[in-house]
Lab assay of single mutants.
Amino acid sequence: KRPMNAFMVWARIHRPALAKANPAANNAEISVQLGLEWNKLSEEQKKPYYDEAQKIKEKHREEFPGW
């Protein structure tokens, strides 16, 4: 399985609240909304998620060399 990128790290945190706020929305609609919200963030706001994604990527590389 591929390691999460910065957007996926961010979305994992924000998806539950968005789903709760929009109970009639299906998963595809929630994903679209998450994408729109992510694109509104500044690079500075995204930086912690890029940092976390890098850590996940490095850990994945250690656990699965050659993947």
Rank of each mutant, 00 (worst) to 15 (best):
56 I>V: 11
64 F>W: 12
34 L>P: 00
61 R>D: 11
15 R>I: 00
11 A>V: 02
16 P>A: 07
59 K>C: 13
13 I>S: 08
39 N>D: 12
34 L>R: 01
63 E>T: 12
15 R>S: 08
38 W>C: 01
65 P>F: 09
39 N>Q: 12
15 R>T: 05
4 M>T: 13
18 L>I: 10
32 V>D: 13
8 M>F: 10
7 F>D: 06
44 E>R: 08
42 S>W: 01
33 Q>Y: 08
11 A>L: 02
15 R>N: 01
1 K>I: 11
66 G>E: 14
9 V>G: 03
1 K>F: 05
63 E>N: 15
18 L>E: 02
37 E>A: 12
67 W>Q: 15
63 E>I: 09
37 E>C: 09
41 L>C: 01
46 K>T: 02
27 N>L: 04
61 R>H: 09
65 P>N: 07
66 G>Y: 07
31 S>M: 08
46 K>I: 03
44 E>T: 07
35 G>A: 13
9 V>M: 07
11 A>I: 00
66 G>L: 08
15 R>Y: 05
3 P>H: 13
22 N>V: 03
10 W>G: 02
9 V>E: 11
32 V>L: 11
40 K>R: 12
40 K>F: 03
11 A>S: 13
67 W>I: 09
49 Y>A: 00
22 N>R: 05
18 L>Y: 13
40 K>Q: 08
3 P>M: 15
34 L>I: 03
1 K>L: 04
67 W>K: 15
11 A>T: 07
28 A>S: 11
50 Y>H: 10
14 H>M: 06
67 W>Y: 07
26 N>V: 04
16 P>G: 08
2 R>L: 01
55 K>P: 04
6 A>S: 03
59 K>D: 13
47 K>M: 13
17 A>M: 15
52 E>Y: 13
37 E>F: 06
39 N>H: 07
12 R>E: 14
43 E>V: 10
12 R>K: 15
4 M>V: 08
3 P>T: 13
56 I>M: 14
16 P>S: 04
52 E>S: 02
1 K>M: 12
13 I>W: 11
15 R>P: 01
54 Q>G: 12
5 N>C: 11
12 R>P: 05
30 I>K: 01
21 A>L: 12
56 I>H: 14
26 N>T: 11
1 K>T: 11
56 I>S: 10
52 E>W: 06
20 K>G: 05
46 K>F: 00
63 E>Q: 06
64 F>H: 14
11 A>C: 09
42 S>F: 00
26 N>Y: 02
15 R>W: 05
45 Q>L: 04
18 L>C: 05
27 N>I: 07
50 Y>D: 03
45 Q>H: 03
2 R>V: 04
23 P>R: 03
51 D>E: 14
41 L>G: 00
35 G>Q: 15
66 G>H: 07
30 I>T: 00
6 A>N: 03
7 F>E: 11
56 I>E: 09
25 A>G: 04
12 R>I: 05
65 P>Q: 10
36 L>N: 15
30 I>M: 07
65 P>V: 12
36 L>G: 04
55 K>A: 12
65 P>R: 12
30 I>H: 03
58 E>S: 09
63 E>P: 13
56 I>T: 07
20 K>Q: 12
10 W>A: 01
49 Y>F: 11
18 L>V: 13
43 E>Y: 08
67 W>T: 14
50 Y>A: 12
31 S>C: 12
35 G>T: 14
28 A>Q: 12
11 A>Y: 05
46 K>P: 00
38 W>Q: 01
29 E>F: 03
14 H>T: 09
61 R>I: 12
19 A>N: 06
49 Y>E: 00
14 H>F: 03
53 A>D: 08
8 M>K: 14
17 A>K: 14
40 K>N: 15
27 N>T: 03
9 V>R: 09
23 P>T: 05
19 A>M: 14
12 R>Q: 14
64 F>T: 15
39 N>G: 11
13 I>F: 05
14 H>W: 04
37 E>Y: 04
66 G>T: 13
10 W>H: 04
59 K>V: 12
15 R>F: 08
46 K>M: 01
28 A>C: 06
6 A>K: 01
41 L>W: 01
59 K>P: 08
39 N>S: 10
19 A>D: 06
27 N>R: 12
67 W>C: 13
27 N>H: 07
46 K>G: 01
49 Y>C: 00
30 I>N: 00
67 W>M: 14
57 K>Y: 15
57 K>P: 14
